[in-house]
C-alpha cells in the first residue's frame, strides 16, 4: 500500500484479521472502531468486562438504557444470544484464556511484547488502571493498535518500555499506521508496511526489525 493508514483503515485491517467465530474484547478508545468493520459473516461475539457477552452497537435514542453500558460507560445494545454475568465471572473468563483476541491501545510496546498503556508515570498524575492489566494478561492474542511514532517522532515500539508496565510479554501483534509487526520468540517481524519501507522504518527505530516471512 502506498499511503499511511488512517485510524479507520487500520480498524478495518484489524477487523479483517479476526478469525470467524472469535470471542473478542475491544479496549476503550481507538480499538472500539474495530467493531464498525466486523461483518455478520464473521460471527464475532464481543465481550465487555463489566459483565456481558453479545454486546451490540452503541445505543441510540430510545434504546438508551442506564443499566446497559460498556466498559467505557457508553450505553450499548444487546444482540440475540447475549448473556450477563458478574464481575468475577467476567474476569475469570478473561484470565482463564477463554477470549480469543483483545485489542488495546498503547503508549509503548517493547520488542518482547511488554505493554505500557495505563500510566505515564508523571508524578502529579492520579493513577487509574481499570481492567487494563487483566486484559493484557487474559486473551489468547493481544493486539495493540497505535500510531507508530509520537508527535515528536519517537518510536512507540521500543527495545524496553520506559513507561510503567501494564503487562509483561503479552502483546502478539502491533497494528500501526505505518506497519503491522508480529512479536514472537524470534523477535519483531514486519508483516507489511504502509507508505514506507522496512529500511526507512529501521532507520528511525531502535528495535531490530525482521522482514516478512
Amino acid at each position: 500500500m502506498s499511503e499511511k493508514l488512517t485510524k479507520d483503515e487500520l480498524a478495518r485491517l484489524v477487523a479483517k484479521d479476526i478469525a470467524p467465530g472469535s470471542f473478542v474484547n475491544l479496549g476503550i478508545g481507538q480499538p472500539t472502531l474495530v467493531s464498525n468493520y466486523l461483518t455478520a459473516e464473521q460471527d464475532v461475539t464481543l465481550h465487555t468486562e463489566n459483565g456481558m457477552l453479545g454486546m451490540g452497537p452503541q445505543a441510540q435514542g430510545d434504546e438508551i438504557d442506564e443499566d446497559l453500558i460498556n466498559a467505557g460507560k457508553i450505553p450499548v445494545t444487546e444482540l440475540p444470544g447475549a448473556s450477563y454475568f458478574h464481575h468475577a465471572d467476567s474476569f475469570a473468563m478473561m484470565r482463564g484464556g477463554h477470549l480469543d483476541v483483545c485489542v488495546l491501545g498503547a503508549f509503548q510496546v517493547s520488542a518482547t511484547g511488554d505493554l505500557a498503556n495505563w500510566h505515564t508515570g508523571a508524578p502529579d498524575a492520579i493513577p487509574a488502571v481499570g481492567g487494563a492489566m487483566d486484559l493484557a494478561t487474559g486473551a489468547k492474542d493481544v493486539y495493540v493498535m497505535m500510531s507508530l511514532f509520537t508527535k515528536d517522532g519517537k518510536s512507540k515500539l521500543v527495545p524496553e518500555c520506559t513507561y510503567p508496565l501494564t503487562g509483561v510479554n503479552c502483546v502478539t501483534r502491533v497494528y500501526t499506521n505505518e506497519a503491522v509487526f508480529l512479536i514472537s520468540e524470534d523477535g519483531v517481524r514486519v508483516r507489511e508496511t504502509f507508505g514506507t519501507t522496512i529500511e526507512e522504518l529501521q532507520s528511525k527505530m531502535d528495535v531490530k526489525l525482521l522482514p516478512a516471512e
Binding site: E49, H87, F91, A92, V129, G130, A132, M133, D134
Partner: peptide
C-alpha cells in the same frame, strides 16, 4: 487510595 486492577478487585 489503594489501586487494584479491576479483575483482581473482583476476585
Amino acid at each position: 487510595l489503594e489501586l487494584v486492577p479491576q479483575g483482581n478487585l473482583a476476585e
